[in-house]
């Protein structure tokens, strides 16, 4: 069996004395899109933070493309081909659109190439390239954030709540981009609260609850139980 792009084995993590991850086991196969679902406080964001090097796990192992990577900093991982788009607006609001894009070159791509990719995918960003990113609409800001995923050609893409606070139409648009990135062979792990949206692009689904992965499977196997998890058993 091929080496997975990401493998977490019995991963534990805590904030102070409060344990948030209690033994997570998760695999993201090469080229696959894995959706991470589950209620608030299940530990999804913490898991992403551990993988991206922002939070140090207390125990357990993390392998990226078969390499053990526990002590690498998030900047180092980013330069090695891990692209993390964190929760909220993953952009610098007080920089212009173009300056935001220029910073993407830290991931090891030339600035010119970054601008080309971003502007060809999102002509709207080209129109607003000298505008402060904070003044863009929510959807445009998320497009700017996604430009990094598109332009830096990562090996693994981590997405945390891409759709937060966005209108459904915009979310659809964003997920078309995600699908396109996935089609180009990038492995993706994404947290999503719009379960149905995520299930459309995902090859596999992992459901987290109480700091553990409680179920994994293909979207069709999971779909029915998801409604319960998100809107409560009564729905």
């Amino acid at each position: 069996m091929a080496v997975p792009m990401l493998e977490a084995i019995d991963l534990h993590a805590a904030y102070g004395r409060i344990e948030v991850l209690r033994g997570v086991d998760l695999r993201v196969p090469k080229g696959a899109v894995v959706a991470l679902l589950g209620p608030n406080g299940a530990g999804k964001s913490t898991l992403i933070k551990c993988v991206s090097g922002q939070h140090k796990p207390t125990s357990g192992d993390l392998h990226l493309a078969g390499v053990h990577v526990q002590d690498a900093g998030s900047d180092e991982l980013a330069r090695l081909g891990l692209c993390t788009i964190p929760e909220g607006r993953a952009i610098f609001p007080n920089l212009t659109v173009e300056e935001n894009l220029r910073l993407i070159s830290y991931a090891g791509v030339a600035t010119g190439a970054v601008l080309d990719v971003a502007f060809s995918h999102f002509p709207r960003l080209h129109e607003r390239r000298s505008q402060l990113a904070g003044t863009l609409s929510g959807g445009e800001q998320q497009m700017l954030a996604m430009s990094r995923a598109l332009a830096s050609d990562p090996a693994l893409l981590l997405l945390d709540e891409l759709s937060m606070g966005l209108a459904p139409l915009v979310v659809d648009e964003l997920y078309e981009i995600v699908a396109a990135i996935a089609a180009s062979g990038v492995s993706i792990l994404c947290i999503e609260q719009f379960a149905n949206t995520a299930l459309r692009v995902a090859d596999y689904v992992a459901v987290m609850s109480g700091g553990r992965v409680v179920a994994t499977g293909e979207p069709d196997e999971i779909r029915d139980t998801m409604v319960d998890v998100i809107l409560g058993g009564a729905a």
Binding site: S52, Q54, G73, S74, D75, A78, R79, T84, I85, P86, A90, I91, F92, P93, N94, L95, E99, R102, L103, I104, S105, Y106, A107, G108, T111, R148, S152
Partner: peptide, 25 residues
Amino acid sequence: TRTRIGTAMRASVDNPELLKLFGGK
């Protein structure tokens, strides 16, 4: 305004964590 490291300086004012995710130091 004109150099990448200068842009990174202004970026790290807002959010040094995010700058690291960009691969900046």
